[in-house]
Structures are given as structure tokens and as C-alpha cells.
Design a protein around this nucleic acid. Structure first.
Length: 283
DNA sequence: AACGTCCGCAACCGCATGGTT
DNA sequence: CAACCATGCGGTTGCGGACGT
């Protein structure tokens, strides 16, 4: 069956909203309430798509929105919920009053998803790159993740790009690479027991002794997910459409002999990070 | 100071779902 | 029951500011 366009696109404005448009939309909704998005622009006198109006209202104009940075406690909530809900941003947003799904999604993609997914003989480590080998401000400039991602996408097409994102490609594993002098172990060839963190090779003795790795001085996460689980979860569409396993299901993550994970929930999150959560078939 | 690059965010796009005709 | 409509949702894109060289 054909799908009718959400609105007549000819002659409609796109891009950033102006203050006047915001005012018109706000005033209209205050007087008439939400809903009827399709007809709203016409009635309100806006040259915008109804969808665009709805998004603008929900994500920006609503009066109950909380402004400002997402706090660390909110981040914790997001991480926790994401570990059990996956990318169901609207559900996560429902637990954070005043925050929108778009805001949370953006925050996740630009900050929280930068958990490094490292590969070590089939096992993946997730941690916050911002806390690894970071000194002061995050380094800017240089070929960092995003451009790398674009390069990968150009070479491997959309799938490669998607995969790059899925494995945290937007993230800053590479950003943690010291600008001037790479650590001695970076240039060496990777030993079997060494851990590749982005482009930084960590010697085995540094991480193996600890379940909770604290590379940069501040622990974020040291969760392991079996490589098998990782790969299967992202390679099958079935896996994507299955209800996320409870966090505790990660208890048996020893398939690859990976270090036992004291924080199993994050291992489950590791798998979920790699598989999109589709609404299809969800309860 | 100029330039190049990256990051964060707002907004767009396409698809799914549920309701109505 | 099929077609259509309205809305919701998640992924993706592109702009502009910030920052490093």
C-alpha cells in the first residue's frame, strides 16, 4: 500500500526554526492544545510540515522541559535503562522528567556511546575513553573518530558506516590517542595478552590483574562481553528483535575465557549497543 | 590570524504502529 | 479486510561554534 506523505512538502520551510515561528507555534498550542499536527501548520499559519511542528514542540518549546546539561545521576539512569531497554529512547525519556528522547539519544550518541569496544581475542571491553589517558581537555584536531567513521563509510558503504556507529565508531577511542607521544606500548606489536584500547595498546599486566580497570585514574566501567555473544547479537536480525536479555543473563560470559565481569549489566549493554532495537515485534 | 577539523545539537527522514473509514 | 491517516519513534544528517595546529 502506498504511503501518503506526511504533508505537502512543496513550499514548506526547512531547517532551523526562527523565534517568530516558535512564538506562533507556542501560542497556537497554548490556545488549541497539542494534536492534529497535520493540520496545525495551516491553521497556525506556519510554512512547516506538521511533523516538524510536533518535533519542535516536543523537543524544544514544551514548557516542562528541563534545560541544561544532563547530570551525572541522569547519565547513570540513562546507562542503566539503556542496558535493559536498548535504544528505546522514548521509554528511557519517560524515566527522566523534562528530558526528551531526542536529547537523550543525542547525549548517548555523542557522549555515552563512546564506550570503547575493544577486541581482544573475541572479548570486548567497554569503557569511557574520556577517562582513559586523558589529561585536561579532550584533544581536538587531528583525524578523529568521526572522520575515520566517514572514511570507513565511504569505503564500506552504508553498512560499514552503520557498523562503525554500532561499535561506537562515533566515539572517541581514537580521541584518547595522545597527540604528541604515543605510549611505548602503542607502537609495539600487539601481544596476545595485550589489550587494544582504541589505538592504544595496554600491556596485559596493567589490566589483567584487575576486574575494574582504572586506566585514566577514574573508573567508569570494566565490563566484558563474550565476543561470541557480541557477534551473534549484531549479526542476526532475530537477535535485534528479541526482548533484551535481563542484565543478569550476562553471568555466563565466559565463552571466550574473558575475565569475569563484576558488573554484568554492562556486558549486556555491550551486546545491545551492537544491535538496533526495532519496534517490530516488541511487546 | 587563518585555516582545518571535530563535536554537539537541532532537525529531517523513513518506517512502524494503531486507529479510522 | 484493505486502504488510508495520524502520530510516534529511532537513525541519520548537516550546520555552526569551538578548538588545535
Amino acid at each position: 500500500m502506498g504511503r501518503a506523505p506526511c504533508c505537502e512538502k512543496v513550499g514548506l520551510k526547512k531547517g532551523r526554526w526562527t523565534a517568530e515561528e516558535d512564538e506562533i507555534l507556542s501560542n497556537y498550542i497554548k490556545e488549541n492544545g497539542e494534536g492534529s499536527w497535520r493540520s496545525l501548520p495551516k491553521k497556525a499559519g506556519l510554512l512547516r510540515c506538521g511533523k516538524s511542528c510536533r518535533l519542535r514542540w516536543i523537543n524544544y518549546l514544551r514548557t516542562d522541559l528541563k534545560r541544561g546539561n544532563i547530570s551525572s545521576s541522569e547519565e547513570e539512569t540513562i546507562i542503566t535503562l539503556h542496558s535493559s531497554l536498548g535504544n528505546r529512547w522514548s521509554l528511557i525519556a519517560a524515566h527522566l522528567p523534562g528530558r526528551t528522547d531526542n536529547e537523550i539519544k543525542n547525549h548517548w550518541n555523542s557522549h555515552l556511546s563512546r564506550r570503547i569496544h575493544c577486541f581482544r581475542r573475541g572479548a570486548f571491553l567497554i569503557m569511557d575513553p574520556g577517562k582513559i589517558l586523558s589529561v585536561g581537555r579532550r584533544r581536538r584536531g587531528g583525524k578523529t573518530s568521526r572522520s575515520m567513521m566517514k572514511t570507513a563509510a565511504a569505503g564500506g558503504g552504508p553498512a560499514a558506516k552503520a557498523r562503525q556507529r554500532e561499535i561506537g565508531g562515533d566515539g572517541g577511542a581514537i580521541k584518547t590517542k595522545p597527540a604528541a607521544s604515543p605510549p611505548p606500548h602503542q607502537s609495539q606489536s600487539a601481544g596476545e595478552e595485550d589489550l587494544l584500547v582504541g589505538e592504544v595498546m595496554l600491556p596485559s599486566e596493567l589490566w589483567e590483574a584487575n576486574d575494574d580497570i582504572d586506566i585514566g585514574g577514574e573508573l567508569f566501567c570494566s565490563s566484558w562481553a563474550s565476543g561470541d555473544e557480541f557477534m551473534s547479537s549484531r549479526s542476526t536480525s532475530e537477535a535485534r528483535e528479541t526482548e533484551p536479555t535481563p542484565a543478569t543473563s550476562g553471568e555466563t560470559d565466559s565463552a571466550m575465557g574473558a575475565p569475569r565481569n563484576p558488573s554484568i549489566a554492562h556486558a549486556a549493554a555491550a551486546q545491545r549497543l551492537t544491535g538496533r532495537w526495532r519496534r517490530t515485534g516488541r511487546p
